[in-house]
Nucleic acid binder design. Structure first.
Length: 584
RNA sequence: GCCAGCGUAGCUCAGGGGUAGAGCAGCGGUUUCGUAAACCGCCGGUCGUCGGUUCGAUUCCGACCGCUGGCUCCA
């Protein structure tokens, strides 16, 4: 592969043989493309987490129909079993070899060493560091998975090349398993489950990236929000509400207008004043802080809001509920004295951890983002705050990765990232120190000495945004929400119409104890009702027929497909209540 | 925003230059059933929108809207 770019992402140690295969498959794919399109120009072709890709400039756009043709060609080359041979040569020599390959020439210029290596097999050669298989015949199971456009060197100002993605495995069985896993992951896709489980929708008439929460999705959200509010009450937060629009001048003062204009919805004019839909919640919180003088004794002040914000996102980036244009952040702003910063940060990270574990996320990645090129405040302030963040992470013995220069312009931050079913990484909780807004809005507190002191401001979410969080949660559980979050916790299934009254009695009994139970009293067969409840992933099914009516019981079935047999209604009730209380 | 693909009934999908079809859902009946789909009948669509080519367009072409896979971006 062209300069064998190592993927910078942290990756588990991979089977080296597999890596060689994927690497070699990329070369064979490039060879096939070269045969089919002699005028092809080659970009780069690295291995990635689950396979490989190669970028090409071609005389015509590729369509999905081209993939099998390329695969067939690759099959021929694999059969020929050409050896991979490496050769070291001077850059001068390489430039001659790649004289008609502008992208390769560009790559060559960036290699500092005097000599480079190329790998050859058959009639194909490529600038590459290796390693490779011994010969193409060692390739066992290769499949091209998709085509895509990709900017040369990831720069949207440069030409868009055509990228072909593929996977390679050591056997057909492994390839089959991989495809099977992909199919299973697709079933967890929140966009599919959102429709199947009737959780949310978007509408062309409303606009892309704007979510309508259906009753069941809204219920899941409400349970999360209620839990969130309770936990914030316990931790000394004050829950507030602030407006969704504000005068443009406010956003000019904050710097948002200047820094994020591209992501803002344009202002609207009302009574000769320009107003703007908010992209963030912080300004209302600041104005509440500033509504009176604050004493050092008042701090820290923690204002929390489930605040809906609107940001313009390019259409191509929108993704189900995970990347949208209107979303509700579980936001809070902490105003504190410099000596309180570290403890506050510590408590916020703990809260984020607590929230993640409450919702079953045991695996997530933590990133510390440091000072970018353009920044507010002073280098010393950044250093101090970054050190506090680092210290907090160390005190909690959290594994984290540093993202140098990836901080927001106004301060360093800690991000927690979750993965969805398809492997995408999404930012969940984020904790940011802000040096910008305190300056711009001059807020302060009165110290023991009676004079004004500057306040440190922390922005934070512990879930991220409700839309994205529910999307990740749905995928995490594959739609089978734990009992405490399940929109419907129990379906009571009468076997025949004559059992309906009893079923409704059981329903009322469960509901009186806060269990979300419904009776499926349609004139349908029990089998159908069970099937549908299973598909809806309802945790408990209570089947009631003659025997149950006679014994004040119900025959219990769990969505795990277990028939738990007959059980007294009182026992079922306490079983479900225990599950709810343990949040399992 | 960019590259490619897609858009047919509420959902999943078939079809294809002569104005459309299945299953499920819905509605009306029949059935009253013991752990993942009972049976019969009916209703249902300007084939995403607008424009063009054509005697004729849902089908071909273009633009737009939306969705999908990537790229770029992501406070």
């Amino acid at each position: 592969m062209p300069h064998c770019r190592q993927f910078e992402m942290k990756r588990e140690a991979r089977d080296e043989q597999l890596e060689r295969m994927q690497h070699s498959a990329a070369h064979v794919m490039a060879e096939a493309v070269q045969h089919l399109f002699p005028e092809a120009k080659f970009g780069i072709g690295p291995t990635i987490e689950n396979g490989f890709y190669y970028d090409f400039e071609l005389p015509r756009p590729l369509t999905p129909d081209d993939l099998p043709v390329i695969e067939d060609k690759m099959g021929e080359f694999i059969l020929r079993d050409a050896s991979f041979v490496t050769e070291q040569m001077s850059k001068k020599r390489a430039r001659e070899l790649f004289a008609d390959q502008p992208y390769k020439l560009e790559l060559l210029e960036e290699i500092p060493e005097a000599d480079v290596t190329i790998y050859k097999h058959g009639s194909f050669w490529d600038l590459c560091r290796g390693p490779h298989l011994n010969s193409t015949g060692e390739l066992r199971a290769v499949k091209l998975t998709r085509i895509a456009g990709a900017y040369w060197r990831g720069d949207e100002k440069r030409p868009m090349l055509q990228r072909i993605y593929g996977v390679a495995f050591e056997s057909e069985e492994q390839l089959g398993e991989y495809l099977q896993r992909q199919a299973e992951a697709a079933k967890r896709d929140h966009r599919k489950l959102g429709k199947d489980l009737d959780l949310f929708s978007t509408h062309e008439e409303i606009g892309p990236g704007l979510i309508c929460w259906h009753p069941r999705g809204a219920l899941v959200r409400r349970i999360i929000e209620d839990y969130w509010k309770d936990e914030h009450d316990k931790r000394g937060y004050d829950i507030i509400y602030t407006p969704h629009i504000a005068k443009l001048d406010l956003w000019k003062t904050s710097g948002h207008w200047e820094f994020y204009r591209e992501s803002l919805y344009p202002p609207m004019e009302i009574e000769g004043q320009h107003y703007m839909l908010r992209p963030m919640n912080c300004l209302g919180h600041i104005l509440i802080y500033k509504s009176r003088l604050r004493s050092y004794r008042d701090l820290p002040i923690r204002y929390a809001e489930l605040g809906t914000v609107y940001r313009y996102e390019r259409t191509g980036v929108l993704y189900g509920m995970a990347r949208v244009r209107g979303f509700t952040q579980d936001d809070a702003h902490i105003f504190c004295r410099p000596d309180q910063v570290e403890d506050e940060l510590l408590e916020v990270v703990r809260l984020a951890q607590f929230m993640m574990s409450s919702f079953g996320f045991e695996e997530y990645e933590v990133f510390l983002s440091t000072r970018p090129e353009r920044y507010a405040g002073t280098a010393a302030m950044w250093e101090e705050a970054t050190e506090s963040l680092r210290h907090v992470l160390d005190r909690l013995a959290l594994d984290y990765e540093e993202d140098p220069g990836e901080g927001v312009f106004y301060g360093p931050k800690i991000d927690v990232k979750l993965r969805d079913a398809l492997g995408h990484e999404w930012q969940g909780p984020t904790i940011q120190v802000d040096f910008n807004l305190p300056q711009r809005f001059h807020f302060c507190y009165i110290g023991e000495d009676g004079s004004e002191h500057s306040v440190t401001m922390i922005h934070r979410t512990v879930l991220g945004a409700m839309e994205r969080f529910v999307a990740c949660l749905t995928e995490h559980y594959g739609g089978a929400f734990p009992v405490w979050l399940a929109p419907v916790q129990a379906v009571i299934i009468p076997i025949a119409d004559r059992h309906a009254d009893y079923a409704h009695g059981v329903e009322a009994d469960l509901r009186s104890e806060g269990v979300r139970a419904i009776v499926d009293d349609r004139s349908e067969r029990m089998n159908l009702k069970i099937r549908e409840a299973q598909l809806e992933k309802v945790p408990y099914m209570l089947i009631v027929g003659d025997k149950e009516v006679a014994s004040a019981s119900a025959s219990l079935r769990a969505r795990s497909n277990e028939d738990l047999g007959p059980e007294a209604v009182a026992a079922i009730k306490s079983r479900i209540k225990t599950a709810i209380e343990s949040r399992s």
